[in-house]
Design a protein around this nucleic acid. Structure first.
Length: 230
DNA sequence: GCGACAG
DNA sequence: ATCTTGTCGC
C-alpha cells in the first residue's frame, strides 16, 4: 500500500476555489463514457526550451483511431510558457499552450488523454480537469508517477488495477498496469468520464508500451517540433 | 534545516 | 520537463 497525501499549500485567495472545485467535481466530472462510441482518441504533450522571460513551448496534439495505432489529425503550436512549473499548479504552465494547439485541430476527438492527473490531485482538479472543462470534451489524466492519494495493492499483470483513494475513502482514480511486470500508470478522470471508462480507454490504447500510443505520438511530435524550431 | 514535489 | 551514450536484454 502506497500512501501519498500532500496537501500542497495554497495562497489564501485560492481556498474558496478549492471548495467549489471539489463540490463541482463530485457532481459533474465523473460519469461513465460509452466506449462503443469512442472512435477517435486525442493526446497532447508539450516540449520546452529554456528562454529568458519564459520558456518556449512546443505543444503537440494528435488524434488517432480508437486503438491508438493510426494518426488521423495533428496540430503543433509554438509559443511562450510564462509560468514556471510548480507541483499542484501544472495547469498554470501547460493548459494555455495545450488549448492553443487544440484550437488548430481540424477534428473533434471523442476523448482526450492528458499527460498528468485529473481528480487524483490535492485539490481534485489537475490539468486533465482544466482541459476537459475548457474544451467540453471527455478527458482522462494519465500520469507516469503518483501525486496524491492512497494506492491499494496492485497485481503485476497487464490490466490489473488498484484504486487511488483520498483519506475519506473516495475513489479518485487507479493505478493501472499497462504491461506485465512494468511500472503502472496513474489514471484519473479529467472531465466527463468515470474511473472504469478511463482505465479502459488507456489500456485499450496501449499496444506494447507502458504509455498509451496516442501519448507517445504526441510526445514524439512535440520533441520533433522543438528540433525544427532550433 | 532537510526532504518532497504531475511535467 | 531537460541535460545525455552506450549498453544489457527480450
Amino acid at each position: 500500500m502506497v500512501t501519498i497525501v500532500r496537501e500542497l499549500p495554497l495562497p489564501p485567495d485560492e481556498h474558496n476555489l478549492h471548495e467549489a472545485q471539489i463540490r463541482w467535481a463530485r457532481e459533474v466530472i465523473v460519469r461513465p463514457l460509452d466506449l462503443q462510441k469512442v472512435r477517435t482518441i486525442a493526446a497532447a504533450d508539450v516540449a520546452y526550451e529554456s528562454e529568458a522571460g519564459g520558456d518556449r513551448a512546443y505543444a503537440a496534439v494528435v488524434v488517432t483511431d480508437a486503438s491508438g495505432s493510426q494518426i488521423l489529425d495533428r496540430a503543433i503550436w509554438t509559443g511562450i510558457a510564462d509560468s514556471p512549473y510548480t507541483p499542484g499548479r501544472f495547469a498554470l504552465r501547460e493548459a494555455a499552450c495545450l488549448l492553443e494547439a487544440f484550437r488548430l485541430l481540424k477534428t473533434i476527438p471523442d476523448v482526450v488523454l492528458i499527460e498528468g492527473h485529473g481528480r487524483a490531485h490535492p485539490r481534485r482538479f489537475g490539468l486533465a480537469c482544466v482541459i476537459g472543462l475548457s474544451l467540453d470534451l471527455p478527458t482522462i489524466g494519465c500520469a507516469k508517477t503518483p501525486l496524491y492519494g492512497v494506492i491499494s495493492p496492485l497485481g503485476n499483470r497487464r490490466g490489473d488495477q488498484a484504486e487511488i483513494r483520498d483519506l475519506s475513502g473516495e475513489v479518485l482514480g487507479c493505478a493501472l498496469r499497462t504491461q506485465d511486470g512494468v511500472r503502472p500508470v496513474y489514471v484519473s478522470p479529467g472531465y466527463g468520464v468515470d474511473v472504469l471508462s478511463a482505465a479502459a480507454v488507456v489500456l485499450g490504447s496501449c499496444s506494447s508500451y507502458r504509455i498509451p500510443d496516442p501519448q507517445r505520438w504526441a510526445h514524439q511530435h512535440s520533441v520533433k517540433a522543438r528540433q525544427k524550431g532550433k
